[in-house]
Design a protein around this nucleic acid. Sequence first.
DNA 1: TATTGTTATACTCTATAACTATA
DNA 2: TATAGTTATAGAGTATAACAATA
Lengths: 147, 147
Amino acid sequence: MAPAISFGPMENSIGFLLRIAQLTVSEATFAELNRRDVPIGEFTILLSVDLNPGIRQGVLADRLRIKWSSMTKLVRSLEERGLVVRQVPPDDRRAIALSITDEGHARVESHKALVLGAIERSVPTLNEQEKQILLGLLRKVAGWPPL
Amino acid sequence: MAPAISFGPMENSIGFLLRIAQLTVSEATFAELNRRDVPIGEFTILLSVDLNPGIRQGVLADRLRIKWSSMTKLVRSLEERGLVVRQVPPDDRRAIALSITDEGHARVESHKALVLGAIERSVPTLNEQEKQILLGLLRKVAGWPPL
DNA sequence: TATTGTTATACTCTATAACTATA
DNA sequence: TATAGTTATAGAGTATAACAATA
């Protein structure tokens, strides 16, 4: 697991280490959740819609760093399965406002503990204090306000 | 840029923030390097081979978190363009040892400053001390030894 | 003219698995 | 039997651009 090899100046690169760390964590998370048929990307969208009823599709795409063309497909799929509702808001008829259905909400609730637990367990090498520091720094990198 | 919307418990998730931060940084880096026709993934492999002559293809794939089947294509492409050499080591004839060519080395040297500069500029929201702390925590997450 | 969302194409990388050559 | 690498197929997501509807 350790880099028996050298990456020279790249080892001081935030971008490079972010990539390696992100893949390390997501592979672990994905392995656990995939076994139980819980698609984490889909869960994230459902949770976001649940917490932010009426959110516009494009805004959600931007925040989650998903391309608009990808978000169209994802949301359409969720709508077809009765998990979200797409509505044209009267004040701007170009837009799509998303809201959760009862079934979508139930899905979020039933998966929440599993997903959050898997994510938590996927970073076993940091203690609580280190995790809080890391979260704060990652928020800064992402351009998010402090908690 | 700020999350005017709430992600609830996901905002405390290292895995989620790692993904957002990584995409934020890589989009900025990619935008700058792509304009100058410098593929960063390819540069990383060339640099690694340059710094670790004779490294096995599979070992490099594992360290860079690239799948073996993807690495095969990437390395073959680099070989076709005369940037790396693939050799079967006598002690294990299943393996492939990689080494850089003069042309590959020249490519690394000519791109090094550009790539590292772009990566550095892609994290404008952190000061030097914060970057060092973040690097250390990311190394821990990735399972790498401390610097 | 600009914005929101859709559609389409080409491309990259992954997930999976079967396959070979060698150990 | 296990390991290093290759090949093939299906799928997800991106990059790009053109497009319709609305602002």
